[in-house]
Design a binder for these strands. Structure first.
Lengths: 210, 210
DNA sequence: CGTCAATACTGAAGAATGCAGTAAAAGATA
DNA sequence: TATCTTTTACTGCATTCTTCAGTATTGACG
């Protein structure tokens, strides 16, 4: 049985359609540019192009780099064809994996300090990525875009990321303020404050500026 | 070698700390309440409690339901201990898997209709969850919270979700308006509009109300 | 009385991650 | 110039997680 094409296969195929890359470059490029849309391990990113070659959607050729060789992958015509077909298929639903939220939900097993620390770590992670994107946009302005013909796409995606990160950072500040008012993490029940929040949310109102 | 405890193990352990559950209830409960913090497959959620029993952190007993038995899992003292320890460990960074963004980034392989469809599907998924949370908050108000002593935690998490969903929906509307102005998906380059957006983003400004 | 949804799982294949291991090239430092 | 570190450039293996198919009972509804 031949392996099937996953969204990760199409991601690699789409990168190969821009230009040929070595396996190493592919892992670096995919991790840098797709980290916040399609986060995949280096290991997988090394395996995908091999699979594409096996299926006839890419070709490899060894290139000499001193005393060592590296694999350069290129897309084939058939690869271009399946890539075009992909754009018409159903998009998978998004998946948000946020361990910090698991810790918040079960915060009653630990201290207030434990929740604050989880929030701090979450904030540090988000803030790091936030700054990366801002810096990347700066580099587009003064150094230019690595693929200028695709600038409109990556800038629209960057807009999404900035909005998300700002929202998360605003929520973290809000959550910290809320938890500051808790005497403990446990058994606060449906107190007046929580009821007010619930009432707002049930009306699809944002309670952040409350 | 004994299996290690993953964040999913702690999630199940935390649920077991609330009350004993059957395997089936555990899968349903975990998927309903943790879907947007820690999305895991039904299959895994059936395996986790078995692993916990093997490690001594939970116990099973068969219960009769007519002609069929079901497994009821309970947490052990040792399980409670490791759960408390977990709150002090490092939180994993978040992971956002959004295929719709992959399709946006590589939209130049398809038509404008293809991108619009990907955005529609993304919106439908988010909107579904958005409405679920609003409905859940409504049910807390008139039916009460299933674990009232934990209301403050789940409402704070709900706040996070509502903020995220609203942000995503706002961005989708913005993206649709942007793409409406594109003559095609390809080769728009660093045009004046894209440059304006880039400039705003490089200053960490939101361009959504532009 | 039949049938359809919900309950209640398990096995096996395949996808993806984490980690360790290997080794050369390039750059930094003394 | 010698050595030390970082970056380049991967692969194999164990483990984790998902997908899918399969099995079979219970309960609701017409």
């Amino acid at each position: 049985m031949s392996p099937r094409l996953t969204p990760s296969s199409y991601a690699v195929l789409a990168l190969l359609d821009l230009k040929p890359w070595t396996g190493y470059e592919l892992t670096q490029q995919a991790q840098r540019s797709l980290r916040y849309a399609w986060p995949k391990s280096e290991r997988l990113l090394y395996s995908e192009p091999k699979k594409l070659v096996e299926l006839g959607y890419a070709t490899v050729h060894q290139e000499d780099r001193g005393n060592r060789t590296r694999n350069v992958y290129s897309i084939t015509e058939e690869g271009g064809r399946v890539l075009k077909e992909w754009t018409t298929t159903r998009t998978e639903p998004p998946r948000f994996e946020i361990e910090a939220m698991l810790r918040l939900l079960f915060a009653d097993h630990g201290s207030r300090e434990d929740v604050f620390r989880a929030l701090d770590e979450f904030e540090a992670d988000i803030d790091g990525h936030h700054q990366d994107i801002v810096a990347l946009m700066g580099s587009y302005l003064d150094g230019g875009h690595p693929f200028p013909q695709r600038a409109h796409l990556s800038v629209l995606f960057a807009t999404f990321q900035i909005e998300m990160f700002k929202t998360i950072e605003r929520w973290i500040a809000f959550a910290r303020a809320e938890i500051d008012d808790w005497p403990t993490t446990q058994d606060l029940g449906m107190n007046p404050r929580t009821e007010t929040l619930t009432r707002r949310l049930a009306q699809d109102d944002s309670p952040l500026n409350l």
